Computed example of a mutant assay.
Amino acid sequence: MTTLLISDLHLHPGSPRVTEGFLHWLEARARVGDALYILGDLFEAWIGDDLLDLAEQDSTGNAALAAGIAAALRRLAEGGTAIYLMHGNRDFLVGSRFAAEAGASLLPDPTVLELGGKRVLLMHGDSLCTRDEAYMAFRQQARDPQWQAQVLAMPIQERIALAGQLRKQSGEANSNKAEDIMDVTPGEVVNVMAEHGVTTLIHGHTHRPAVHEIEVDSRPARRYVLGDWQPAKGWEIAIEDSSEPQLQAFPLP
């Protein structure tokens, strides 16, 4: 069994090299995997699954990108790789229609699975950044089904404008925050891992790839952080059979 995990690709029309690199990775590397887990922020923004209906009318390129990625994922799924999608802080409106067209299953955040012979906690990671109180307040709103329903009921052009506004506000807010505020809260990590009874956590979101040796309930534990994809480099975690997770970067063609 080979399990692959990635996150934080932030695909958008303005970064074609990342998109091209991801499509190449799907056709080459990902096909060796029995399962692929995408732990959030596959897209830089997602305004609703009805974006897929606009592939020929959308001048921004977002609809064509979404349709192309869905088709590429479906080809991978049809080749025998199980695909799982978790929401991130950018693409929390990804729904069942996109998942179906991509041949994927939506995965709750958090999720505990047995990988490599041990219980592993999978998360996007944004819920661990509890010191960022402003973001946590927005996260609570954005994950509320009623709020999401109200947004999805808006005309699509208004949703496109809202997504742009939220991205701008997020960038401005982050530029004024201390670095440690935007990282995970160590105590929250330990609490969440103890709550789920695991000694292995894999997440993304922070764009700070690393393997952290920690202690949970007096037991040695590890926190694996996936990196974000850049035009020249991607990140993955591979788990082979009962081996330890391997965090690795690789060049994009």
Rank of each mutant, 00 (worst) to 15 (best):
H124N: 05
W147L: 03
G234R: 06
G204Y: 07
Q57V: 08
D144A: 06
L226Q: 08
L152H: 04
A72N: 02
D41C: 06
Q140N: 12
L5F: 12
F22Y: 07
H124S: 00
R17Y: 00
W147T: 04
L122H: 00
Q57M: 12
E133K: 15
V216A: 05
R17C: 05
G227L: 05
V112P: 03
L51W: 02
N191G: 14
A163E: 07
L52R: 04
L4N: 02
I69E: 08
P110A: 00
Q157T: 14
C129E: 05
R139T: 05
S170R: 01
G171H: 13
S218Y: 07
F22P: 06
A102N: 06
R223K: 00
D183I: 03
R208N: 08
L122C: 03
G171Y: 08
V184M: 14
L201T: 01
P220M: 09
V190G: 03
K168F: 13
S218F: 09
R131C: 07
I83S: 04
D180F: 14
E213M: 11
P209Y: 02
Y37P: 04
M154S: 08
A100G: 12
R90L: 12
A232Q: 15
H205D: 11
S218E: 15
L52N: 04
I47N: 06
I239F: 05
G164W: 04
Y37V: 01
A134R: 15
R222C: 09
A238K: 14
E78R: 12
N174C: 12
L106G: 10
A82F: 00
I83M: 01
V198D: 10
E158L: 12
K168G: 13
N62L: 12
L39F: 00
E244S: 15
